[in-house]
Amino acid sequence: MSRLETNLRVVRALGMRSVRQTFRRPQLIAPIVVFPTLLLAIQTGGAGAAVNLPGFPAVQSFLQFMLAGAIMQSLMLAANSGGIALAVDIEMGFTDRLFAAPISRYSVVLGRLVGTAALGVAAALWFLAIGLVFGANIEGGVPGALVVIALTTAATVAIGGVGSAIALRTGKASIVQGLFPLIFVILFLSTAFFPQGLMVEPAQTIAKYNPLSFIVEGIREPIVTGLNGTDLLGAVLAVAGIATISLLMSARALRHRLRTGG
């Protein structure tokens, strides 16, 4: 078997492990699925009249508008929980066992990210399904849904990279867990939950430049208007930018950990 083949198998096995791990622990799956779903339901029913505000973009319903926000929230939490799980592995010495194996050390981190990405896919599917069940149209049809899924997956890896970089650098689950509030700060300061033009200052200005807003709009466009590509390009660029930085950070943190032994 070639080395590439071996490493791919390792990535796959570790990815499967991290997905299984998540689904077996209610503490891990709840924040990724239950809380965003709960908030989606509450915000849709509670603030749904917002679509009547002057200046609200043309949408079928507030639910349709909010789906992208819920997906974004879910993928951020999945990315964070991937980082926590990696840090726990480091704390327990599980990664040492993997680093001692004759495989590429990057594949250890990559395996975790593949697992995280799978959770991103699951999140996109879940919220698209919820939207359809409760009567929201996916204007972009099947191609639109595929774009949503692809973009969500890529964004999960990009943001998951941030989580794993911090996990690798600190090796402490509590520190990665401590990012939890920060996730909501960044989300609230993006267009995840409301149109940028109707947000209150200073959130409005920050949301305008928040890279997360670009990703959210890229996910939202195929759902609320269809595939026309205006927002998609911005989203792809934002994802690529974040991914480049976060994966480089992860690689550096990994090398640092291997060099210094922790």
């Binding site: 603030a47 009249a49 917002a50 509030p181 609230f188 209150v200």
Partner: peptide
């Protein structure tokens, strides 16, 4: 965080 965040996001609901 939820208070400040929701305030920034849903603040214009009062115009309804």
């Amino acid at each position: 965080i939820f208070f400040l965040g929701l305030n920034g996001v849903f603040g214009s609901l009062t115009q309804l």
